[in-house]
Design a binder for these strands. Structure first.
Lengths: 198, 198
DNA sequence: TGTACATCAGTGAACGCGCGTTCACTGATGTAC
DNA sequence: TGTACATCAGTGAACGCGCGTTCACTGATGTAC
C-alpha cells in the first residue's frame, strides 16, 4: 500500500505532534507555545493553526494521541498471557499505567487536563473512554476469579485508578525522589499495588 | 497583645496571599499573574515584588501557607479522639487529605509543583516535611495496633499517599464526575480508603 | 502527453495584548534626642 | 512635646519580550479534459 503523497512538508501534522512532545519535555506544558512548536518543526508560525485551528486544538489532538497509546498499553497488560490469573493481570495493568506515565510524560501531562483540552472533542472522548474501559475490564476479570467479592466495581475502579494515578503524578512531580529501596518506578508500583492482594 | 502597627496598607503581604487564592480560583494557576494579584489587592503592580521578590517567591510563600494548614488538618485528623483505634484514625487522616485538597484547591494546586515553587526554600521544605510526617505517624500508630504487620513503613506510606493524592487530583481535575452513588468526595474517599482494611 | 484549472498547505507581515522586572521616586511611619 | 532624621512600603513610568490569532498571499500539488 503506497502512502498518500502528501503536500509540501510531507506529514506536517504528525510532525507537529512529535515536536509538541519534545517541547513539553524541554519546557513543560506551561511553557509550550505554538510558535515554538512551529519553530522546531522548521515551519512558519502560522502553520500549526492550519492543521489544528488553535492551541487548544493542538493539545486536544496531542492528548488524544496519548490516550490511544495509553489504551494500547493498558490493553496489552490486561491481555498479557505471561501471568496466569486475572488478579495478576489486574496488577500488571496498574503497573502499566504508571509505566506509561513515566515513559510518556509529555502526553500524560496533557491527557487529564480539561483546562487545556477540548473535552467535548469526539475523538478525545472516545480514546479516553477506551482507556478507562481497560481498567474496568481488568477489574471485572479479577473479580470473576474471586477478587474483592461483593464490592461495587465502580468503587474498586476508583480505588485502582486513584492509586496508580497518584503514584504516577507523585513520581512525575518528583515527590517520591526520597523513596529508597526500589530499583525503579515499576518495582515501586508493583510493591504498592501488591499490598491489597486478597 | 496589641497588633504591630503596620505601615501603609496594613498587612499587604497576607492580603496578597489571600488574593492569590482568589485569582487561582478564578483563572487557574496558569493564568495567575503578579499584576492581577496587585490589581485585586488595589495596589500598584510593583508592590508584590517588594514582599516576595518575584512570582516564584509569591507562589513559594503561598504553597508554604498551604502546607502549614495542610499539616494542621492532617494532624487534627490523626489525633482526633472521636474514633477509637489507630486504624480508624489512619483512615480519617486519608479522608482529611482529600478533603483539604477539595476545600483548598488553590493552595493544593501549587503545593506539589516544584516547577512553580522554590523547593529549596527552608520554610517551604519544613512545612511540607511536617505534613508528610503526619501521614507517617498515622501509619506507624496503625501498625503498632496490628495493621499490615511486617510491611515496610515506607511502602505503606507511598501506598497511602498515592491513593489519597490520586483521589484528590482526579477529583479536582473533574475526572470523577461520572462516579455515582456517593454523597460527596469525603464519602467516596471513605469508601475507597476502607477497602484495604485488615 | 500536455494544458488549464482548482485545491489547499504553508508564508510572513501585522495586530494588539499582558506580562515580569527594574528603578528612581514619594510619602507615611517609627525613632532618637 | 517637638523636631530631625532614618527607614521602608508602595508608586508609576518604562523596558523589552513572546505570545495567539488573523489574513491576504504564494506556490506546490493533484485533477479534468
Amino acid at each position: 500500500v503506497p502512502k498518500k503523497k502528501p503536500y509540501h512538508h510531507g506529514d506536517l501534522s504528525s510532525r507537529l505532534l512529535e515536536v509538541t512532545a519534545e517541547v513539553i519535555d524541554d519546557v513543560g506544558v506551561a511553557g509550550l507555545s505554538l510558535r515554538e512548536v512551529a519553530r522546531r518543526a522548521g515551519v512558519s508560525h502560522g502553520a500549526p493553526a492550519h492543521h489544528f485551528g488553535d492551541k487548544r486544538g493542538l493539545l486536544t489532538a496531542f492528548a488524544t494521541q496519548g490516550f490511544a497509546r495509553f489504551g494500547d498499553a493498558l490493553e496489552a497488560a490486561r491481555c498479557s498471557e505471561d501471568s496466569g490469573n486475572a488478579l495478576q493481570r489486574f496488577e500488571a495493568t496498574g503497573v502499566a499505567y504508571v509505566q506509561f506515565a513515566v515513559e510518556h510524560e509529555a502526553h500524560f501531562d496533557v491527557m487529564f487536563r480539561p483546562d487545556l483540552v477540548d473535552a467535548s472533542d469526539e475523538a478525545y472522548a472516545a480514546a479516553s473512554t477506551r482507556a478507562y474501559q481497560q481498567l474496568l475490564l481488568a477489574i471485572q476479570a479479577a473479580q470473576a476469579e474471586g477478587y474483592a467479592p461483593g464490592v461495587d466495581v465502580e468503587t474498586l475502579a476508583v480505588a485502582a485508578w486513584a492509586k496508580t494515578h497518584g503514584l504516577a503524578t507523585l513520581w512525575l512531580e518528583g515527590n517520591l525522589r526520597n523513596v529508597t529501596g526500589y530499583e525503579d518506578v515499576s518495582a515501586l508500583a508493583r510493591a504498592v499495588l501488591a499490598l491489597d492482594k486478597g
